[in-house]
Structure formats: structure tokens, C-alpha cells
Simulated scan of single mutants.
Amino acid sequence: MNMKRTFGAVLTILGIIGIIWGAYAFVMGGDGAMIGKFTSAVPFLIGLIFFFAGINLVKTIKDSDSR
């Protein structure tokens, strides 16, 4: 597997985690996630950036056979 594709997959997974964490913190009002209601937008936005960057990286990198 290509190294850039692996990095894209890792970014995508981190983005999903950030989106879930930000949404959970927003719904809970900051009680269960150690952050306030409005600052829960920060991990959500960072998660969105990571998610779309990872998807774009996986989608645009072509598989190359080194054999």
C-alpha cells in the first residue's frame, strides 16, 4: 500500500474521531468532554478538515505497482 494512501486513511480516521468528539461535546453542553459548548466547534472543525483532507488524499493518489 502506498505511504500517502496510508496517511490519508489515518487522517480520515482522525477526522471521524474529531467530528464525533465535537458533536458529542456540543450535545452534552461541555459537561462530559471537558470543553464548553461553543468551544466544541474547534474539534469539530479540525475533524472536518482532517476528514476531507484524508478523503481527498486517498481519492487522488493512484496505486502504483513496484513489481
Rank of each mutant, 00 (worst) to 15 (best):
A41D: 06
G22P: 07
K59I: 08
M28V: 06
G30W: 10
I17F: 09
D63H: 09
N2Y: 02
I20N: 00
M1F: 10
R67I: 08
P43K: 05
D63L: 11
A23S: 12
V42P: 00
K37A: 14
I17Y: 06
F52I: 15
T12I: 00
K37W: 10
M3N: 10
K59T: 11
N2S: 10
W21L: 11
T39R: 04
F51W: 13
T39S: 13
A9Q: 04
K37Q: 15
G15M: 03
K62W: 00
T60R: 13
G22K: 01
F38V: 12
I46E: 10
G22C: 05
G29D: 09
F38K: 09
T6S: 07
I19E: 02
G15H: 05
G47A: 05
T6H: 08
G8H: 04
V10K: 02
L14W: 02
A41R: 12
G36E: 02
S40W: 07
K62D: 12
G15P: 03
I46Y: 13
I16D: 04
G18W: 06
A41I: 14
L14Y: 01
L57A: 11
L11V: 00
A53N: 11
P43T: 09
L48Y: 01
I49A: 15
I19Q: 03
F7A: 10
L45V: 14
R67D: 10
I49M: 11
A33C: 07
G54N: 09
D63G: 03
L45D: 09
L14K: 01
F51G: 08
M28K: 04
S40D: 07
F52T: 15
R5W: 06
F44D: 06
G29H: 08
R5S: 13
M1A: 09
T39P: 02
G8V: 02
A41C: 01
D65T: 13
A53P: 01
N2E: 15
K62V: 14
K62M: 07
F52N: 09
F7E: 02
